[in-house]
Design a binder for these strands. Structure first.
Length: 616
DNA sequence: GGTCACACAGTTTTT
DNA sequence: CTGTGTGACC
């Protein structure tokens, strides 16, 4: 590696990446240059150690993170004036990796290469069908929560045959029965759900040591990002991949584990040394993102957790302004206050615009009031979250037609298109025999389907809501051009959430420049991995954050605290914390007391906004 | 097969 | 408050 590249890293970062072989644990604090170390390490492996990129596996938790990694590695390699390398490392999520493995080798365990991937909506539909067949009322058993339970069981790698021995009580025993039928149903439909992608791959490896062996040979170097958020299945897969060469680097921070409710277990990172006793551990504790006061605030909140290790971050950055805490009269006053502060900052400071700000809340339900105030005042914003693009009704409808073309066994999709009208279905079935889809591009198939079924006539251009749906279908068409092979297309839309395109979202302005210049609104979960110059954390009240459901449970409270830590550490320059004395929640006026997390902030770095706010 | 009224529940959501 | 699901009815 070129000296200049190496020199831009600090001592700890250099140490962490120059150790290339054997098990390595990098405890990387918020804003400590984690992605940097991972990408440099990969570049280092390729250029210095002459490792073929094809022998390196990089696993991340989002596709966005994966493509960022790829971009940055490519840049590093070309900056290092390497010949354009033929092989770049595989960088992707566990799910996309497993989908690829199963398409190739799933046949050994009865997984056919044209399987479809069921998302949460499909899963719920499947669950309803099964529960109906079993005469289980969806009143006493909510299909969504049964699905969630089964997901948890699968992530623990417990099969339908094994689960009954763990099931306790009526609910779990019923889940055990549904689980058996659900797996059978998926199999009959040629479908896998997200959890199956992982579990089936583990099974494939368990039953076919030679297949496992071929992947172990291929992936001689394994790097796993966000290791604190791995579940049992992902943890097992990591160990399997690294089982032969033991060149495994895991990166993460227990304090940022916020997906326990989804099976993530931060103990996987805490106990990594039990799995690999000869592990080399590196701590990255220098923070490049935030002011000292923000780090102090974050530390004072997270240090109340005693169930996991906590990194003590430090920075060479300035101390910065105090944390502003504001008690609003109600939820509208809260947002008005935030906007007033934004305007002050924009007016007084250079280089600040609406896009410098993010407003973070605990629950999506809170976003509506916030949006209303933004709309009312005409402030541009981008709302991240809500209904996922590919789970929107019109998208699911259109995709279902395509899925049935590819996999006629898929009854969930078939049922869905059946509900779109008898005539439409007949025309579709007639049309489906007329073409050989293997000879057509995705876009051609899509357009022919839309034409044959006259699907678009369901919507009326003059109705605003319908117009948005038509726009969304247009967006699917543009994705279709990117993936001319129908199987690739279907896999992509299953595994890759569409970017948040402002035009899908209620936006104040239709002017292109204004779109970029917008305040971001999102949940605390969604902000992980991002940073903003100014962060507003709103609704800091007991019952909202920490959420009411977490109040009675130590572990859940600990996770809420980590979530708060994640929120605080997103801020680069200035942090605002607000709560409302009274708020409208589910149509009820409630008054909550201030969040314990606010009370945990050290008084020396906090100022109440009743006084003049202190800027930069 | 489609529509309407009513009841009811309502964290977070990388894939 | 509001989105979703259910059951009754045309």
């Amino acid at each position: 590696m070129k000296k200049s590249l190496f020199e831009s890293l600090n001592k700890d970062q250099k140490a962490a990446l120059s150790h290339t072989d054997g098990p390595i644990l990098i405890l990387a604090g918020a804003g400590s240059g984690k992605t940097r170390v991972l990408t440099y390490k990969t570049a280092h492996l390729m250029t210095e150690k002459k490792i073929d990129g094809a022998n390196i596996l990089m696993v991340t938790f989002t596709n966005k993170a994966a493509s960022e990694m790829k971009d940055r590695i490519l840049k590093l390699l070309s900056a290092n004036s390497q010949q354009p390398t033929a092989n770049l490392p595989f960088a992707g999520t566990f799910h996309s990796l497993c989908a690829k493995i199963l398409r190739r080798d799933g046949k050994h365990i009865g997984v056919l290469p044209n399987f479809v991937i069921y998302d949460e909506v499909d899963k719920k539909d499947a669950m309803k069908t099964i529960m109906n067949n079993k005469n289980i009322s969806s009143k006493s058993f909510n299909p969504g929560s049964v699905g969630g339970s089964i997901s948890g069981i699968k992530n623990e790698l417990i099969s339908p045959l094994e689960y009954p021995q763990y099931a306790r009580g009526y609910y779990q025993e019923t889940v055990a029965e549904i689980y058996i039928d659900y797996q059978k149903f998926l199999h009959e439909n040629g479908a896998l759900d997200f959890d199956d992608l992982l579990f089936e791959t583990v099974k494939l490896f368990a039953k076919n040591p030679d297949v496992l062996s071929s992947y172990q040979e291929k992936f001689r170097y394994v790097l796993v990002d966000e290791y604190q958020d791995t579940n049992q299945a992902q943890y097992t897969l990591s160990k399997l991949f690294a089982g032969r060469y033991r060149n495994i680097t895991v990166v993460g921070d227990a304090s940022q584990s916020i997906y326990a409710w989804r099976g993530a277990n931060f103990r996987n990172i805490v106990n990594f040394k039990n799995d690999f006793p000869d592990v080399k551990v590196f701590n990255l504790e220098q923070n490049y993102r935030s002011t000292q006061k923000i780090l102090d605030a974050a530390f004072s909140v997270i240090s109340k957790n005693t169930d996991h290790p906590i990194l003590k971050l430090w920075t060479e950055n300035e101390k910065g302004p105090s944390i502003t805490v504001y008690e609003a009269r109600d939820e509208q006053d809260e947002v008005n206050f935030a906007i007033k502060e934004m305007h002050k900052i924009i007016a007084e400071e250079k280089n600040y615009s609406y896009s410098s700000f993010v407003m973070l809340y605990r629950t999506n339900a809170q976003s509506r009031t916030i949006e209303e105030v933004f709309l009312h005042l005409g402030i541009p914003y981008i709302l991240v979250g809500g209904v996922r693009f590919y789970e929107r009704r019109e998208i699911k409808d259109v995709i279902s037609y395509l899925r049935v073309l590819v996999n006629p066994k898929d009854m969930v999709s078939f049922k869905r298109i059946s509900k779109l009208g008898k005539k439409r279905l007949d025309k579709f079935l007639e049309f489906s025999t007329e073409f050989d889809i293997s000879k057509l591009t995705t876009l051609e198939i899509l357009d022919k389907t839309l034409e044959a079924t006259d699907y678009l006539s369901l919507y009326n251009k003059d109705v605003e809501e319908d117009l948005a749906r038509l726009e969304n279908i247009k967006e699917v068409r543009s994705v279709a051009t990117e993936f001319p092979a129908i199987l690739d297309f279907l896999e992509n839309i299953s595994l890759v959430e569409q970017e948040y395109l402002p035009q899908n979202k209620p936006l104040f302005s239709h002017n292109k420049d204004d779109r970029k210049n917008a305040v971001t609104l999102m949940t605390l979960h969604a902000v992980k991995g991002l940073e903003f110059p100014v962060v507003f954390m709103v609704g800091m009240e007991e019952g909202l954050f920490p959420h009411a459901r977490a109040l009675m449970d130590r572990e859940q409270l600990s996770e809420e605290r980590r979530l708060c830590y994640v929120g605080i550490t997103r801020a680069m320059k200035k942090l605002y914390i607000t709560y409302a004395a009274r708020r409208l929640y589910f149509g009820q006026r409630t008054s909550n007391i201030v969040s314990r997390f606010v009370l945990d902030l050290p008084s020396g770095i906090v100022e109440s906004s009743l006084t003049e706010t202190d800027y930069f």
